[in-house]
Design a protein around this nucleic acid. Structure first.
Lengths: 143, 143
DNA sequence: CTTGCTGCAAACAGTTTGCAGAACT
DNA sequence: AGTTCTGCAAACTGTTTGCAGCAAG
Protein backbone atom coordinates (compact mmCIF):
# COMPACT_ATOMS: atom_id res chain seq x y z
CA UNK A 1 0.00 0.00 0.00
CA UNK A 2 2.89 2.33 0.72
CA UNK A 3 4.35 1.39 -2.61
CA UNK A 4 1.05 2.14 -4.28
CA UNK A 5 1.04 5.60 -2.81
CA UNK A 6 4.56 6.24 -3.93
CA UNK A 7 3.60 5.26 -7.41
CA UNK A 8 0.54 7.44 -7.25
CA UNK A 9 2.67 10.39 -6.26
CA UNK A 10 5.21 9.67 -8.94
CA UNK A 11 2.59 9.67 -11.66
CA UNK A 12 1.20 12.89 -10.31
CA UNK A 13 4.68 14.40 -10.33
CA UNK A 14 5.35 13.14 -13.82
CA UNK A 15 2.05 14.48 -15.09
CA UNK A 16 2.82 17.87 -13.62
CA UNK A 17 6.39 17.90 -14.87
CA UNK A 18 7.72 17.95 -11.34
CA UNK A 19 11.16 16.64 -10.59
CA UNK A 20 11.91 13.68 -8.45
CA UNK A 21 14.21 14.72 -5.66
CA UNK A 22 15.87 13.08 -2.72
CA UNK A 23 13.96 15.35 -0.32
CA UNK A 24 10.56 14.50 -1.71
CA UNK A 25 11.33 10.81 -1.45
CA UNK A 26 12.41 11.16 2.14
CA UNK A 27 9.44 13.27 3.13
CA UNK A 28 7.03 10.92 1.42
CA UNK A 29 8.60 7.90 3.13
CA UNK A 30 8.42 9.44 6.54
CA UNK A 31 4.96 10.86 6.01
CA UNK A 32 3.68 7.45 5.00
CA UNK A 33 5.26 5.93 8.07
CA UNK A 34 3.50 8.28 10.46
CA UNK A 35 0.28 7.80 12.30
CA UNK A 36 -2.69 9.84 11.22
CA UNK A 37 -2.89 13.56 11.94
CA UNK A 38 0.75 14.58 11.92
CA UNK A 39 1.35 18.23 12.36
CA UNK A 40 3.91 19.83 10.11
CA UNK A 41 6.21 20.41 13.04
CA UNK A 42 6.02 16.78 14.18
CA UNK A 43 6.83 15.60 10.71
CA UNK A 44 9.63 18.13 10.37
CA UNK A 45 11.26 16.98 13.59
CA UNK A 46 10.94 13.34 12.64
CA UNK A 47 12.55 14.05 9.30
CA UNK A 48 15.27 16.14 10.79
CA UNK A 49 16.34 13.48 13.22
CA UNK A 50 17.28 11.11 10.42
CA UNK A 51 17.99 13.67 7.73
CA UNK A 52 19.20 16.92 9.21
CA UNK A 53 19.52 19.71 6.74
CA UNK A 54 16.02 19.46 5.36
CA UNK A 55 14.31 22.79 5.89
CA UNK A 56 10.94 23.75 7.19
CA UNK A 57 9.99 25.31 3.90
CA UNK A 58 10.59 22.14 1.98
CA UNK A 59 8.35 20.20 4.31
CA UNK A 60 5.59 22.74 3.92
CA UNK A 61 5.96 22.85 0.18
CA UNK A 62 6.07 19.10 -0.14
CA UNK A 63 3.05 18.53 2.03
CA UNK A 64 1.13 20.89 -0.18
CA UNK A 65 2.16 18.80 -3.15
CA UNK A 66 0.93 15.68 -1.41
CA UNK A 67 -2.38 17.40 -0.84
CA UNK A 68 -2.61 18.43 -4.47
CA UNK A 69 -1.77 14.94 -5.55
CA UNK A 70 -4.65 13.58 -3.52
CA UNK A 71 -2.39 11.66 -1.19
CA UNK A 72 -2.96 13.71 1.92
CA UNK A 73 -5.58 15.99 3.35
CA UNK A 74 -5.22 19.03 5.55
CA UNK A 75 -7.14 19.05 8.76
CA UNK A 76 -7.47 21.74 11.38
CA UNK A 77 -8.23 20.64 14.88
CA UNK A 78 -8.59 23.49 17.28
CA UNK A 79 -4.91 23.98 18.09
CA UNK A 80 -3.87 26.46 15.45
CA UNK A 81 -1.67 24.01 13.60
CA UNK A 82 -2.25 22.41 10.28
CA UNK A 83 -2.22 18.67 10.39
CA UNK A 84 -2.13 16.23 7.54
CA UNK A 85 -3.71 12.86 7.32
CA UNK A 86 -3.32 10.09 4.81
CA UNK A 87 -6.11 9.59 2.34
CA UNK A 88 -7.17 6.01 2.03
CA UNK A 89 -9.01 5.40 -1.17
CA UNK A 90 -12.62 6.49 -0.95
CA UNK A 91 -12.60 6.67 2.77
CA UNK A 92 -14.09 9.54 4.62
CA UNK A 93 -13.81 9.65 8.32
CA UNK A 94 -14.54 12.12 11.02
CA UNK A 95 -13.13 12.77 14.43
CA UNK A 96 -14.00 12.64 18.07
CA UNK A 97 -11.45 14.95 19.67
CA UNK A 98 -10.87 14.71 23.40
CA UNK A 99 -10.37 18.18 24.80
CA UNK A 100 -8.70 16.74 27.86
CA UNK A 101 -6.01 14.39 26.53
CA UNK A 102 -6.04 15.42 22.86
CA UNK A 103 -6.65 11.89 21.74
CA UNK A 104 -8.53 11.44 18.52
CA UNK A 105 -10.99 8.72 17.73
CA UNK A 106 -11.94 8.28 14.12
CA UNK A 107 -15.32 7.17 12.97
CA UNK A 108 -17.37 6.93 9.90
CA UNK A 109 -21.09 6.97 9.69
CA UNK A 110 -22.71 6.37 6.40
CA UNK A 111 -26.08 7.63 7.52
CA UNK A 112 -24.58 10.98 8.48
CA UNK A 113 -22.94 11.19 5.07
CA UNK A 114 -26.25 10.54 3.40
CA UNK A 115 -27.94 13.21 5.46
CA UNK A 116 -25.22 15.65 4.51
CA UNK A 117 -25.93 14.92 0.88
CA UNK A 118 -29.61 15.50 1.51
CA UNK A 119 -29.02 18.82 3.24
CA UNK A 120 -26.73 19.94 0.45
CA UNK A 121 -29.23 18.95 -2.22
CA UNK A 122 -31.88 20.92 -0.41
CA UNK A 123 -29.76 24.03 -0.81
CA UNK A 124 -28.64 23.35 -4.35
CA UNK A 125 -25.16 22.87 -2.98
CA UNK A 126 -22.58 20.60 -4.58
CA UNK A 127 -20.37 18.93 -1.97
CA UNK A 128 -16.67 18.69 -2.56
CA UNK A 129 -15.53 17.76 0.90
CA UNK A 130 -16.61 18.06 4.43
CA UNK A 131 -15.33 17.83 7.90
CA UNK A 132 -16.87 17.12 11.16
CA UNK A 133 -15.35 17.17 14.55
CA UNK A 134 -16.98 16.39 17.82
CA UNK A 135 -15.28 17.80 20.89
CA UNK A 136 -15.67 16.43 24.34
CA UNK A 137 -14.26 13.93 26.80
CA UNK A 138 -13.12 10.48 25.86
CA UNK A 139 -14.00 7.47 27.96
CA UNK A 140 -10.74 7.67 29.90
CA UNK A 141 -10.98 11.33 30.74
CA UNK A 142 -14.58 11.15 31.86
CA UNK A 143 -13.69 9.32 35.02
CA UNK B 1 -33.06 39.97 22.29
CA UNK B 2 -30.07 42.22 22.10
CA UNK B 3 -30.98 43.58 25.47
CA UNK B 4 -31.22 40.06 26.81
CA UNK B 5 -27.73 39.32 25.70
CA UNK B 6 -26.40 42.47 27.24
CA UNK B 7 -27.98 41.47 30.49
CA UNK B 8 -26.58 37.99 30.19
CA UNK B 9 -23.12 39.38 29.70
CA UNK B 10 -23.51 41.79 32.57
CA UNK B 11 -24.46 39.03 34.97
CA UNK B 12 -21.53 36.99 33.78
CA UNK B 13 -19.25 39.96 34.31
CA UNK B 14 -20.68 40.64 37.71
CA UNK B 15 -20.33 37.01 38.76
CA UNK B 16 -16.71 37.03 37.69
CA UNK B 17 -15.96 40.36 39.31
CA UNK B 18 -15.21 41.95 35.97
CA UNK B 19 -15.57 45.65 35.46
CA UNK B 20 -18.02 47.29 33.18
CA UNK B 21 -16.12 49.48 30.78
CA UNK B 22 -16.95 51.72 27.87
CA UNK B 23 -14.96 49.51 25.49
CA UNK B 24 -16.75 46.33 26.42
CA UNK B 25 -20.09 48.02 25.94
CA UNK B 26 -19.08 49.27 22.53
CA UNK B 27 -17.65 45.96 21.41
CA UNK B 28 -20.69 44.09 22.63
CA UNK B 29 -23.03 46.50 20.84
CA UNK B 30 -21.19 46.23 17.58
CA UNK B 31 -20.71 42.50 17.86
CA UNK B 32 -24.43 42.04 18.40
CA UNK B 33 -25.18 44.21 15.39
CA UNK B 34 -23.04 42.13 13.04
CA UNK B 35 -24.08 39.32 10.83
CA UNK B 36 -22.94 35.86 11.78
CA UNK B 37 -19.30 34.79 11.36
CA UNK B 38 -17.45 38.04 11.90
CA UNK B 39 -13.73 37.75 11.84
CA UNK B 40 -11.83 39.63 14.50
CA UNK B 41 -10.41 41.94 11.88
CA UNK B 42 -13.81 42.77 10.42
CA UNK B 43 -15.16 43.54 13.83
CA UNK B 44 -12.09 45.57 14.71
CA UNK B 45 -12.43 47.73 11.60
CA UNK B 46 -16.12 48.22 12.18
CA UNK B 47 -15.45 49.31 15.72
CA UNK B 48 -12.62 51.56 14.75
CA UNK B 49 -14.66 53.47 12.21
CA UNK B 50 -17.04 54.71 14.87
CA UNK B 51 -14.71 54.51 17.85
CA UNK B 52 -11.12 55.00 16.83
CA UNK B 53 -8.64 54.40 19.58
CA UNK B 54 -9.87 50.97 20.51
CA UNK B 55 -7.01 48.54 20.10
CA UNK B 56 -6.72 45.16 18.50
CA UNK B 57 -5.82 43.56 21.79
CA UNK B 58 -8.94 44.77 23.49
CA UNK B 59 -11.10 43.32 20.76
CA UNK B 60 -9.35 39.97 21.07
CA UNK B 61 -9.57 39.98 24.83
CA UNK B 62 -13.19 40.99 24.84
CA UNK B 63 -14.23 38.40 22.30
CA UNK B 64 -12.65 35.79 24.47
CA UNK B 65 -14.76 37.05 27.34
CA UNK B 66 -17.87 36.78 25.19
CA UNK B 67 -16.94 33.23 24.43
CA UNK B 68 -16.43 32.43 28.08
CA UNK B 69 -19.72 34.03 28.94
CA UNK B 70 -21.49 31.76 26.48
CA UNK B 71 -22.54 34.61 24.25
CA UNK B 72 -20.33 33.83 21.29
CA UNK B 73 -18.60 30.86 19.80
CA UNK B 74 -15.32 30.62 17.91
CA UNK B 75 -15.40 29.06 14.51
CA UNK B 76 -12.58 28.30 12.12
CA UNK B 77 -13.44 28.16 8.47
CA UNK B 78 -10.50 27.31 6.31
CA UNK B 79 -9.04 30.81 5.99
CA UNK B 80 -6.70 30.98 8.93
CA UNK B 81 -8.76 33.51 10.80
CA UNK B 82 -10.82 33.05 13.87
CA UNK B 83 -14.40 34.03 13.43
CA UNK B 84 -17.05 34.48 16.07
CA UNK B 85 -20.70 33.79 15.82
CA UNK B 86 -23.58 34.63 18.09
CA UNK B 87 -25.01 31.87 20.16
CA UNK B 88 -28.76 31.75 20.08
CA UNK B 89 -30.15 29.83 23.02
CA UNK B 90 -29.98 26.13 22.47
CA UNK B 91 -29.34 26.42 18.80
CA UNK B 92 -26.71 24.45 17.07
CA UNK B 93 -26.15 25.01 13.43
CA UNK B 94 -23.64 23.88 10.88
CA UNK B 95 -22.29 25.37 7.70
CA UNK B 96 -22.23 24.86 4.00
CA UNK B 97 -19.20 26.86 2.87
CA UNK B 98 -18.89 27.79 -0.78
CA UNK B 99 -15.27 27.48 -1.84
CA UNK B 100 -15.92 29.73 -4.81
CA UNK B 101 -17.64 32.82 -3.39
CA UNK B 102 -17.07 32.20 0.35
CA UNK B 103 -20.74 32.45 1.09
CA UNK B 104 -21.98 30.48 4.03
CA UNK B 105 -25.30 28.75 4.34
CA UNK B 106 -26.35 27.65 7.75
CA UNK B 107 -28.37 24.60 8.45
CA UNK B 108 -29.48 22.45 11.27
CA UNK B 109 -30.38 18.82 11.09
CA UNK B 110 -31.70 17.17 14.12
CA UNK B 111 -31.19 13.68 12.76
CA UNK B 112 -27.51 14.33 12.25
CA UNK B 113 -27.25 15.58 15.81
CA UNK B 114 -28.88 12.43 17.06
CA UNK B 115 -26.51 10.29 15.06
CA UNK B 116 -23.58 12.18 16.49
CA UNK B 117 -24.84 11.41 19.95
CA UNK B 118 -25.14 7.78 18.98
CA UNK B 119 -21.61 7.62 17.61
CA UNK B 120 -20.26 9.32 20.71
CA UNK B 121 -22.12 6.96 22.99
CA UNK B 122 -20.70 4.04 21.08
CA UNK B 123 -17.19 5.22 21.96
CA UNK B 124 -17.98 6.21 25.52
CA UNK B 125 -17.42 9.77 24.51
CA UNK B 126 -19.12 12.72 26.17
CA UNK B 127 -19.89 15.49 23.69
CA UNK B 128 -19.27 19.05 24.66
CA UNK B 129 -19.50 20.67 21.27
CA UNK B 130 -19.11 19.85 17.67
CA UNK B 131 -18.61 21.43 14.35
CA UNK B 132 -19.38 20.37 10.90
CA UNK B 133 -18.58 22.14 7.71
CA UNK B 134 -19.40 21.02 4.24
CA UNK B 135 -17.29 22.54 1.50
CA UNK B 136 -18.35 22.79 -2.09
CA UNK B 137 -20.13 25.02 -4.57
CA UNK B 138 -23.27 26.93 -3.80
CA UNK B 139 -26.18 27.04 -6.22
CA UNK B 140 -24.93 30.29 -7.78
CA UNK B 141 -21.38 29.18 -8.32
CA UNK B 142 -22.34 25.87 -9.86
CA UNK B 143 -23.55 27.48 -13.02
C1' DC C 1 23.04 23.90 -19.77
C1' DT C 2 18.55 24.95 -18.41
C1' DT C 3 15.11 24.99 -15.19
C1' DG C 4 13.11 23.55 -11.12
C1' DC C 5 14.12 22.58 -6.19
C1' DT C 6 16.26 23.44 -1.77
C1' DG C 7 17.78 25.79 2.47
C1' DC C 8 18.22 29.74 4.63
C1' DA C 9 16.65 33.87 6.42
C1' DA C 10 13.57 37.33 6.26
C1' DA C 11 8.78 38.51 5.72
C1' DC C 12 4.11 37.84 6.96
C1' DA C 13 -0.52 37.27 9.25
C1' DG C 14 -2.99 36.44 13.12
C1' DT C 15 -2.80 36.46 17.86
C1' DT C 16 -0.85 37.14 22.55
C1' DT C 17 1.67 39.51 26.13
C1' DG C 18 4.18 43.11 29.08
C1' DC C 19 3.73 47.30 30.80
C1' DA C 20 2.74 52.15 31.93
C1' DG C 21 -1.01 54.92 32.33
C1' DA C 22 -6.16 55.41 32.45
C1' DA C 23 -10.56 54.10 34.33
C1' DC C 24 -13.69 51.76 37.19
C1' DT C 25 -15.44 50.72 41.94
C1' DA D 1 -6.74 54.04 46.89
C1' DG D 2 -6.61 49.83 44.97
C1' DT D 3 -7.09 47.04 41.21
C1' DT D 4 -8.62 45.94 36.76
C1' DC D 5 -8.66 47.33 32.01
C1' DT D 6 -6.76 49.59 27.96
C1' DG D 7 -3.67 50.84 24.13
C1' DC D 8 0.50 50.47 22.36
C1' DA D 9 4.30 48.09 20.79
C1' DA D 10 6.92 44.22 20.91
C1' DA D 11 6.92 39.25 21.03
C1' DC D 12 5.38 34.92 19.30
C1' DT D 13 3.66 31.12 16.34
C1' DG D 14 2.70 29.00 12.24
C1' DT D 15 3.38 29.62 7.49
C1' DT D 16 5.03 31.75 3.10
C1' DT D 17 8.32 33.96 0.07
C1' DG D 18 12.73 35.75 -2.18
C1' DC D 19 16.84 34.43 -3.60
C1' DA D 20 21.48 32.40 -4.38
C1' DG D 21 23.29 28.06 -5.00
C1' DC D 22 22.44 23.13 -6.05
C1' DA D 23 20.78 19.29 -8.66
C1' DA D 24 17.75 16.81 -11.94
C1' DG D 25 16.72 16.19 -16.68
Amino acid sequence: MILEKKKAFNSFAAAKGLRSTRQRDIILDIFLSTHQHVSVEELYLKIKSSHPGIGHATVYRTLRLFTESGLAREIHLHDGQTRYEHIMAGEHHDHLVCTCCDSIIEFEDETIEKLQDAVAALHGFQIKSHKMEIYGLCANCRQ
